[in-house]
């Protein structure tokens, strides 16, 4: 009786407790939107201090470059509108139709796209793991424009810190970025070397399998020995009880 009442009460209580709302705020979507908005603010700031790039953008035909990342599934749209560059990031499949309407598309894994964008300027996508479709002439112009973007960091920093301090800070920041880039490259090379060196010390697959077989035989031998000892002990106990 008491347990039934308690069960009833707990059931009613559980109905009133907050359950996970499937239509609650989608925090991942909000995080992506916020990050994209901040990134767009940086792009706007950079373009505001790159008059040559702005002029070149205004010369370029309006259009959208859709960058479809296959792993993980993310779609980045870079739209040229007059002398502005608009950025949108989508994580759902619903924007595939927009990608097909874009002027040019790049499709590939995050690592392949990252390698393409981070490395030296390439004149072909062959062997890069990235597929390019659409208006490739426009894509080439767009790519050249982004590669030659020249931001006046001194101008940006001069506003809050003054001309001289802004110039020194910009010079320092450029040197720090360059140092960071070289360190990153060096770190990657070192990491590869360490892995290669360490790899030599690791046993081969064949020797690991041989060791595994020997271990199995040893375990079986130990089991047999244990069984023999048990048998001998039992035999001895039986003999002793018969003598008594």
């Amino acid at each position: 009786m008491i347990s039934a009442t308690l069960g009833n009460f707990l059931e009613q209580l559980s109905q009133t407790l907050p359950a996970r709302d499937p239509n609650g705020l989608k925090l991942s979507q909000l995080a992506v939107a916020s990050a994209t908005n901040r990134l767009q603010a940086l792009v706007d700031l950079a373009l505001s201090e790159a008059p040559v790039t702005r002029h070149q953008l205004s010369q370029l035909d309006d259009g959208t470059l859709a960058i479809s990342v296959t792993e993980p599934t993310v779609e980045v749209h870079l739209s040229v509108i007059e002398n502005r560059l608009n950025l949108q990031v989508y994580t759902t499949q619903e924007h595939t139709e927009q990608a097909t309407r874009s002027r040019a598309q790049l499709t590939g894994s995050a690592s392949a796209l990252g390698a393409l964008m981070g490395g030296e300027q390439k004149h072909s996508f062959a062997g890069s793991g990235v597929a390019a479709t659409g208006d490739l002439a426009w894509l080439g112009q767009f790519n050249a424009l982004l590669a030659n973007i020249d931001i006046d960091w001194g101008g940006i920093l001069a506003r809050p810190f003054g001309d001289v301090a802004g110039h020194i800070l910009a010079k320092g920041a450029k040197a720090a970025v360059e140092h960071g880039r070289r360190t990153l490259e060096r770190s990657a090379t070192n990491a590869v070397e360490v892995l290669q060196q360490e790899w030599q010390w690791l046993p081969t697959r064949a020797s690991t399998e041989k060791f595994d077989r020997q271990l199995l035989e040893l375990r079986r031998g130990a089991d047999r020995l244990q069984a023999k000892i048990d048998y001998t002990l039992r035999q001895r106990q039986r003999d002793q009880s018969e003598q008594n």
């Binding site: 979507q29 909000l30 939107a33 916020s34 994209t36 908005n37 767009q40 706007d44 502005r84 949108q88």
Partner: peptide, 12 residues
Amino acid sequence: RVTIELAGVRQG
């Protein structure tokens, strides 16, 4: 604030 973030407003 959430509305503004999800609006994804762009210049122009």
